[in-house]
């Protein structure tokens, strides 16, 4: 009977401890962040393609003659060709993704399931021993009741969970608070400097180079065209102009996704500082990452499924032009 007292006390401690344990939200944050960051890679691909296209545009705008060897030079433009020379954007994104992955691993280490199996095995063995005792001693009463032996097994599982959850909570708090300043700095650098500042501005200028070529063609032919021909040609030029305006759509979406990760991380850090592992604010911030990620997916599927042309509509946003 003596062991029953500490057991009941421990059970109460366990129940109160579980209420503040770090569970789903941090893990969900880490998963959502990993998914969103993988999309930044597609922006790098788009930039690579645009650079190659830009060189072909410059070739087409000159009166020079070309041979096959001139195209071979285009391969050197691919920024991912040298793996040792990773882009700052990729290094920064990879650093954030590794962090998110480590955070997800830390958030789930020592799960209840793992420890429950150990506890269940123990309960089973105790029950067997109980039966043997009754048979050997010829006692009608068991050494311990069935209820008690299963409680002991549960105790092992719960004590383990309590211990690991407490330790995990302390570690998560330390890690997230220490990571917040570099996460904010990197997020800002990725979204503002690298994505918007470098890639978006270059995409815009490169699309402009191509558009100028079409204007030059139009201007060279305009004297020989009637109204209908000019209207048709100008409509086509306008479509290309709109296309340039939407060139940076994926950059905007990626930038938005990175910003929502930064925001969610800042919310988490703030809440953890106050000892809150789960809150409505964290839930909302994580939800925003998922919504931004979904928007990115929508755009991606729109781009991949569009059989005509992607363009910006002032009222509808990015759309697939009707065939």
């Amino acid at each position: 009977m003596l062991w029953k007292l500490p057991l009941s006390i421990i059970a109460v401690v366990l129940l109160s401890g579980c209420a503040s344990s770090p569970t789903g939200q941090i893990e969900v944050f880490a998963q959502a962040a990993t998914d969103s960051l993988s999309k930044v890679e597609s922006v790098v691909d788009e930039f690579n393609q645009a650079r190659i296209n830009d060189r072909i545009v410059m070739m087409a705008q000159s009166d020079d003659k070309y041979v096959t060897a001139d195209f071979a030079k285009l391969n050197d433009l691919h920024l991912q060709s040298n793996k040792q020379d990773k882009l700052a954007l990729q290094r920064a994104t990879q650093s954030l993704a590794s962090y998110a992955e480590a955070l997800a691993d830390l958030a789930i280490v020592g799960s209840r399931e793992e420890l429950s199996i150990a506890g269940a095995k123990l309960s089973q063995s105790l029950a067997t021993m109980n039966g043997q005792y009754q048979a050997l001693a010829g006692e009608p009463e068991p050494l311990m009741s069935i209820e008690s032996s299963s409680k002991l097994g549960r105790l092992v599982a719960e004590l383990g969970s309590y211990y690991t959850e407490k330790k995990r909570a302390e570690s998560l708090k330390q890690v997230i608070l220490a990571a917040d300043p570099p996460v904010q700095l990197l997020g800002e650098a990725i979204s503002v400097e690298l994505l918007s500042g470098v890639i978006e501005s270059r995409l815009y200028a490169m699309r402009g180079n191509e558009l100028a070529g079409h204007f030059a063609d139009y201007n060279a032919r305009v004297g020989k065209m009637n109204f209908a021909q000019k209207k048709k040609a100008l409509d086509q030029l306008y479509d290309k102009y709109r296309e340039r305006e939407s060139a940076a759509a994926s950059v905007d979406m990626a930038s938005k996704a990175v910003k929502s990760i930064m925001k969610a991380h800042a919310v988490m850090a703030k809440e953890l500082e106050q000892g809150e592992f789960e809150s409505a604010d964290i839930l909302n911030a994580v939800g925003q990452i998922k919504r931004d990620h979904k928007a990115f997916d929508d755009l991606e599927s729109l781009i991949s499924s569009c059989k005509t042309e992607i363009m910006a509509d002032p009222e509808k946003g990015i759309i697939c032009k009707a065939g």
């Binding site: 920024l79 700052a88 300043p181 990197l186 650098a189 470098v198």
Partner: peptide
């Protein structure tokens, strides 16, 4: 810029 980044980015990484 994309290859080198900035000292600030490298430090944060």
């Amino acid at each position: 810029t994309l290859l080198e980044g900035t000292a600030e980015i490298e430090q944060a990484v």
